[in-house]
Amino acid sequence: MATSKVLGYLESRKNLTGGACGLLGLVLTFTGVAGPYWPVVVAGLYGAGALIAPPERPAPPTFPDPSAQLDAVREDFAKLGGYLADVDLPPALGTRLTELTGLLAALLEPGWVAEVLAQAPEGVHTLSRAVRQDVPEAVDTFVRTRWWTRLTPGTEPPEHHLERQLTVLHEEAERLASVLRDAEARRQESHTRYLEDRSQ
């Protein structure tokens, strides 16, 4: 621990700046300017250099960029697909879930779609939340509630809630796709205006 602190100081800006100023003191000594007080001059210049050196600052933490985040979401989406394949859903709900996962898969498709999505951090967050939280929780609560409903018939069917949840999630994914489409449309319009202005 102490050794690392010493090594850290030796590599610090304060020591390097002080050392450069101390070398200037030695130059003054060899040219005869410092005279008999050269140790004080060298030490003083070293200290002054160490004091004026900019302080060390810790490096800011690095976080994965949106593209790397999307790679992680894709991996989790594959896990989600394995989980959903083992869940027994009524045909209508299975179709609704397939529509949702198909839309999520299209949004997570590597390539230019992912490049557009990577420029929209909120969109990455929306997809991440849907894959890692919303869809698995909706399906899992349906499975557990359906088991209890069999023990207590006459209550509201859990299928109604799952259908509503999947509808909301599908609408949310459609809104995200619409935002991305609009962004590309604006980009196309901007390029058209640029070309038209250039030709004038």
Rank of each mutant, 00 (worst) to 15 (best):
E137R: 06
L100Q: 06
R175L: 11
E137N: 13
R74V: 03
Y9G: 02
E184L: 15
E159F: 09
R132D: 13
S190P: 07
L195H: 10
L45H: 04
R74F: 11
G102W: 01
A72E: 14
P90D: 13
E109K: 07
T145V: 10
R146M: 09
G44Y: 02
R181Q: 14
Q165W: 05
A34Y: 08
T62H: 06
L162S: 06
L84V: 15
V87W: 00
T31D: 06
A68D: 09
Q133K: 14
V139C: 01
P58C: 03
Q133D: 12
L104Y: 01
T192I: 15
Q200A: 06
G18K: 00
W38C: 07
D71T: 12
A59V: 14
L104R: 02
E159Y: 04
V131I: 13
Y83S: 03
S178T: 05
Q69D: 02
G35S: 05
V124D: 02
P91C: 12
A118V: 11
L16V: 15
A105D: 15
V179Y: 13
E115V: 08
V116D: 13
Y9H: 14
D76S: 12
K5F: 12
P39Q: 11
D182P: 00
F63V: 10
L16F: 13
G154H: 02
A106F: 11
A48R: 04
L127G: 00
D88H: 05
R181G: 07
G49F: 05
G44D: 04
A106T: 05
T126S: 12
G81F: 00
P121I: 12
L180K: 06
W38M: 10
E115G: 10
G25D: 09
K79V: 06
H125T: 06
E11H: 13
V139T: 02
E159M: 04
L103V: 03
G49W: 05
L28T: 01
T192G: 01
F77Y: 09
H161F: 08
V124Q: 09
R198H: 07
V41L: 15
A53H: 07
H161P: 01
P90N: 08
D76P: 01
D182I: 04
D134C: 03
A105K: 10
R144K: 08
F30N: 10
W148Y: 14
V41K: 10
D76K: 03
P61H: 04
L166G: 09
A173P: 01
L103A: 11
T145D: 04
F142A: 01
T31K: 14
A183F: 10
R74L: 09
F63N: 00
L117S: 03
A34M: 02
T126D: 11
I52G: 03
T167E: 11
E172V: 00
A120V: 13
E137S: 05
G22I: 03
V27K: 09
V87Q: 08
H170E: 01
W147P: 00
P64Q: 02
R175F: 09
P91E: 09
P136I: 12
P64M: 02
T192K: 13
S67M: 08
M1E: 07
D86H: 04
V6S: 14
K14D: 14
G44R: 00
E174Y: 01
P66N: 08
V113T: 14
L166P: 04
F30Y: 13
G47N: 05
A130R: 01
E99F: 03
